[in-house]
Each structure stands twice: as C-alpha cells, then as structure tokens.
Write a protein that binds this DNA or RNA. Structure first.
Lengths: 117, 117
DNA sequence: GTCATATATCATTCGTGGCTGATATGTCGA
DNA sequence: TCGACATATCAGCCACGAATGATATATGAC
C-alpha cells in the first residue's frame, strides 16, 4: 500500500503540466484543422489557408506555434514554405481519439464546462 | 489531384471541432492529474483531492466535466463516490503522448503561444 | 533596381473557462 | 431526528489565449 505522500511524490514520465500543454496545442479547432490538412501531404501556407479557411495571419500564427512545439516542420522552397507533420505517430494519436470519440467519450459534444470556441 | 474545393468539403470522421473539444478536456493540468491518479485504481473524491492537491469544489467540478464527457465513470458506494477511467484506451493515449513528448514534440514546454496556467 | 507575391510579426480586443468561497444536497451513525 | 462527513452546485472574479488588422520581412519575376 502506498501512502498519500508517496502518491503525491510520484512523478512518472513527463510532468502533468507538460502533458497538459501538449494537449492544449491540440485543443484548438484551427490548429487541428491544420494538422488534419497535413495528414496526407505537405502543404504550403497558402494551401493551408485555402483548405482551412483561416486568415493568413491566423494560420501563420498557429503554424509558428505548431512548429515551435515540434508538431509540424517547415521547409522553405522558393518563396513558399512547405509544412508537414513532424511525426507520423500524430496520425495514430488522432486515430485513437477518433475511436474514443466514436465509442466511449461521446458526451464530449454536450459537455457544458467548456464550449466550442 | 484534388481541387481546393474538394479538400474543403471533405469531412473525415468526427468533426474537427469535436476532436478539439476532446483535447480541450485533456488540456488542463487539474483534469490530467485526476486522470493520472485514476490510471492505476478507482478512487473516491476525497482520495483524489488528497493526491492531486486540488480543492474539493474544484476537483468535483472537474470530475463532473470528465464524467459528462465520458472520460471517467463514478459509482456511489455508501457516502463515497468512486471514480474510474471509463476506457483503458485512455492509458494508450497518454502513453502515446508521453512518447511524443520524449522524442519529437519537445519544445512544447518552451512554446510561448500559450502558458502553463 | 522595382513590383508582386508569400509568409511572418505585432498590438489590441474580447470571449472563454478555471479557481475560489459559500452554500446545498446527500448519506451514514448515534 | 440530529449532527458529522462526503460530495455537488453555483456565482463571481480574473487571466489566458484566439482572432483581427496593420505592418514588416523575404523571395522571386521583370
């Protein structure tokens, strides 16, 4: 049996705050639509803007964020910058969440604690 | 090759907003610490409060949120309510994110677009 | 060089959501 | 029935962060 103090002390893997921050990176419809657009193929910023419907500055801001976090990687080609997913395991992550959404964590859409900004 | 219009039209799986909302559920250190505490065994609210250090009302609020979303399930036992993870695939999800955090998406901690509330 | 295109940066605004403190509901023991 | 404990609910405050609009930088065409 483990005491409360021990339970408090345990720090398994990355800190909870770090995990939360990763999820916050994914917890935005704009960023998710960018990632979703990049699932199949690399795209330039202009293409991303066209596909997602985001404004140019907004898309660029989110791309900087995603890039800093390491979720996407950009490569300059001429005057275009092509972004791609930095890790294909992001696809696995998204697939897993889709499974959960379809089966167990229905009710997310009706949860009133936070909205659909 | 697919036109921009076709790319805009595609709606694969759950909507982006729904996925974002699930991630927002996970994008909070308090909720994550609750989920983390529940990874090994079901716990009462009091135990969760003791382990996470959250205030009672705060923990209860988050538990309601998690419960509504379907991430956890509560069962009344006497005057205690024992909560558990509703789906073990949440463990897989957390493990995957830990992998990503360790390898590719380092830089999350230093990303300045959002903080560590 | 100049102009057009592609992307990035920055300040401001404003809604959202997390925390707190007080109170309400519920459940058991005496 | 009364009191103690366990949990839930609610209103209010405050900070964070997403979107916008204007501007800056960079790259290529002419």
């Amino acid at each position: 049996m483990s005491s409360v103090a021990e339970l408090i002390e345990r720090t398994d893997g990355p800190t909870v705050a770090l995990r939360a921050k990763l999820f916050r990176g994914l917890a935005d419809a704009s960023r998710l639509s960018i990632l979703d657009a990049l699932r199949t193929e690399p795209l330039s910023v202009g293409e991303i803007v066209a596909i997602t419907g985001l404004s140019q500055s907004n898309a660029s801001n989110h791309l900087r964020c995603l890039s800093e976090c390491g979720l996407v990687a950009g490569e300059q080609r001429g005057r275009f910058v092509h972004y791609r997913l930095s890790d294909q395991r992001l696809n696995d992550l998204l697939l897993l969440t889709d499974e959960l959404l379809a089966e167990t964590v229905c009710g997310v859409d009706t949860c009133g604690n936070y909205g659909a900004r």
